[in-house]
Design a protein around this nucleic acid. Structure first.
Length: 431
RNA sequence: GCGGCCGUAGCCAAGUGGUUAAGGCAGAGGAUUGUGACUCCUCUAUGCGCGGGUUCGAAUCCCGUCGGUCGCCCCA
């Protein structure tokens, strides 16, 4: 770029053209599917008090320590651009006293911000879609949210997805397990990869996330978390699995799937793909019964998930080109008095629900017809000075070349006529 | 934040030190001043992400920088 020109900031991008159709499709599917489950959309602020995130995400996490967009406003408040969606939703529910109003189901969608090295499917301003259910510890809630995630992805017709499932138990279970894991790993400390050596003291569970072959080698004989589940967590886990099976959802148990922070409890899951390289997770979630309390609310069980929309869009794009919605009418006009006529006809047709564009170029009719063809319009309304006089308007069907004459204005206002004409033409919805 | 690769028009892309930077798509105009699809013609980068350096000469070599991409970290 020239030094004088402006460009989108690193890790941000414009979404337009054929890509925007994918976003609209995605958002429509989400609205439909979550709406049918009676989830309420919630839109929380893009920025919040910094403290909300440091408490809600965890003081020791990379997100809080090195990835947040934090700034001081003119009133000397420390604010942060939200790096994820859950904390704001929880804050809102606490603030509006919704947590003692029975089970609350909500979903959100919007931009999130993390200062990371950008890559395909990973932006600094990115978008997440998420759902949260508050106020139920019933395993059916876990099953419901997972089923919704799966339904949504099915609606997008994305192949090659895997639902991975685990239980991280209750906090006491995890503490006992963590002690056992550390005891097992300590003799091998020198052989672990450097990141895992640090985790050994800071957050041992996350060693399971390591991609180092040497570390994974050592872990093959390590104690497994599921063996340490207490009876309550164990029963919950079994009921979740029974529910998934009853709904016909296939899942893969993955004992290496972990969550590091204390308020995560029991269910943990991820939906992964093999088509995105290192960005394998398109969505993830689980139960976080301790979060509301950590944010100062009355203890409330909760379960939910979030998906990275950029990643879904990348996957949709790999499915191939998306056809733009075709134009129904293209209005070409050339000569005295045709301008007004073109405006009136476009209004009549648009009010009947058709997609209509007027050619504004005033160039030769042949040129205008050519554009109608390029745009893939079904029909072309042709206006010249003769038509202004006669009020008999030629409408040409571009696929067949057949031209008919329509009375203005009566013929154009006749919904039934146009509906019949278009009934035979396939009009794909789709992405 | 760390390491590798890459950056020529709206898009794809040839050129890898020698005077005027191929080609294709898209776009504009014309052959065709009232009718599209095919065809043909013309136009569209004083410029090779940006800045500096080496050289008689740089898109090409060097340094820096910005951006993208792959992996790590982290996560969705």
């Amino acid at each position: 770029m020239t030094s004088a020109s402006l460009q989108a900031s690193r890790g941000t991008r414009d979404i337009w053209g054929s890509e925007i159709l994918l976003w609209q499709f995605l958002e429509q599917q989400a609205r439909d599917i979550l709406g049918r489950a009676n989830y309420q959309e919630i839109r929380t602020p893009i920025f919040e008090a910094t403290e909300l995130f440091s408490r809600g995400i965890g003081e020791g996490t990379d997100i809080v320590n090195k990835e947040m967009y934090t700034f001081t406003d003119r009133g000397d408040r420390s604010l942060t651009l939200r790096p994820e969606g859950t904390a704001g939703v929880v804050r809102s529910l606490i603030e509006h006293k919704r947590l003692n109003q029975g089970v609350q189901r909500c979903w959100y969608q919007g931009a999130m911000f993390r200062y990371e090295r950008p890559q395909a499917g990973r932006q600094r301003q990115f978008h997440q879609l998420g759902v949260e259910v508050f106020g139920s510890a019933d395993p059916r809630a876990d099953v419901e949210v997972m089923a919704l995630a799966w339904e949504f992805l099915q609606a997008l017709s994305l192949p090659g997805l895997t639902l991975e499932l685990n239980s991280v138990g209750d906090p006491e279970d995890r503490q006992r397990y963590q002690a056992a894991l550390v005891e097992y790993l300590t003799p091998y400390a020198q052989a672990l990869d450097p990141d895992s050596q640090v985790r050994l003291t800071k957050n041992p569970l996350r060693i399971w996330d390591s991609k180092s072959p040497a570390t994974q080698d050592i872990l093959t004989a390590a104690p497994r978390l599921p063996a340490y589940l207490g009876s309550a967590a164990q029963a919950h886990f079994e009921q979740v699995q029974a529910g998934l099976t009853a709904l016909g959802l296939t899942y893969t148990l993955n004992p290496r799937l972990v969550r590091g922070l204390d308020y995560y409890t029991r269910t943990a899951f991820e939906i992964t793909t093999t088509d995105l390289g290192a960005q394998a997770a398109v969505g993830g979630g689980g139960r976080y019964d301790g979060l509301v309390q950590a944010l100062g609310g009355t203890p409330t069980p909760a379960v939910g998930w979030a998906m990275g929309l950029e990643r879904l869009v990348v996957l949709l794009q790999k499915q191939g080109e998306t056809p733009a919605p075709r134009l129904d009418f293209y209005i070409v006009a050339q000569g005295e008095g045709t301008g007004i006529l073109s405006l009136q006809i476009s209004q009549m047709l648009r009010r009947q629900g058709f997609r209509v564009e007027i050619d504004l170029s005033n160039s030769a009719l042949g040129k205008q017809l050519k554009r109608a063809d390029k745009l893939g319009s079904h029909a072309c309304v042709i206006l010249g000075e003769n038509e202004v006089q006669s009020q008999q308007i030629p409408v040409k069907w571009l696929a067949t070349g057949v031209q008919e004459w329509v009375d203005f204005p009566a013929g154009f206002a006749d919904d039934e006529r146009w509906r019949q004409k278009f009934a035979a033409i396939p009009r794909p919805k789709g992405p």
